[in-house]
Amino acid sequence: NSASGPLPDGWEQAMTQDGEIYYINHKNKTTSWLDPRLDPRFAMNQR
């Protein structure tokens, strides 16, 4: 992992069949290639 600590509440790390890691936001029912622990847009929304 490139980030430390647990994923934010509602997020899950998953892997594609090709072995690529992505992240699932169960609250918004969206997915992201960016780790939410590193995404400044997500961090701003949590303050």
Rank of each mutant, 00 (worst) to 15 (best):
N25C: 10
D39C: 15
N1Y: 02
W33Y: 07
K27L: 10
Q17T: 14
N1G: 07
M15S: 14
D18V: 07
S2A: 07
P40N: 14
Q46P: 05
K27Q: 13
A3W: 05
P40M: 14
A14V: 06
P36Q: 01
P40K: 13
D39Y: 13
L34Y: 13
W33T: 03
K29V: 03
L7N: 05
L34M: 07
W33Q: 01
L7D: 05
P8V: 07
H26I: 07
R47H: 07
R37S: 06
E12M: 06
D39E: 14
M44D: 15
A3H: 08
W33S: 03
K29G: 13
A3N: 15
T31W: 00
Q13D: 06
T16L: 04
W11D: 02
L38W: 08
D9Q: 06
P40G: 14
Q13P: 08
M15A: 08
R37G: 05
K27M: 09
N28E: 09
P6F: 07
F42P: 14
Q17Y: 07
M44Y: 09
F42H: 11
D39P: 10
T16W: 02
I21D: 05
W33D: 02
M15V: 10
L34D: 04
L7Y: 14
N25L: 02
D35I: 03
R41D: 14
L34R: 10
K27Y: 06
Q46M: 10
T16K: 02
H26A: 10
D18W: 03
D35G: 02
P8L: 06
M15R: 13
L38N: 15
A3P: 07
H26K: 15
E20C: 04
P8H: 07
E20I: 03
N45M: 10
G10F: 09
S4K: 14
R37N: 03
S4D: 10
L38Y: 10
N1K: 09
M44Q: 12
K29D: 03
Q46Y: 10
D35W: 01
T30H: 02
H26F: 10
Y22M: 01
G5A: 10
Y23T: 00
D18M: 11
D9L: 08
T16H: 02
H26D: 10
K29T: 05
M15Q: 14
E20F: 02
Y23L: 00
P36N: 00
W33F: 12
L34W: 05
P6S: 13
N28R: 13
D39Q: 15
L38P: 12
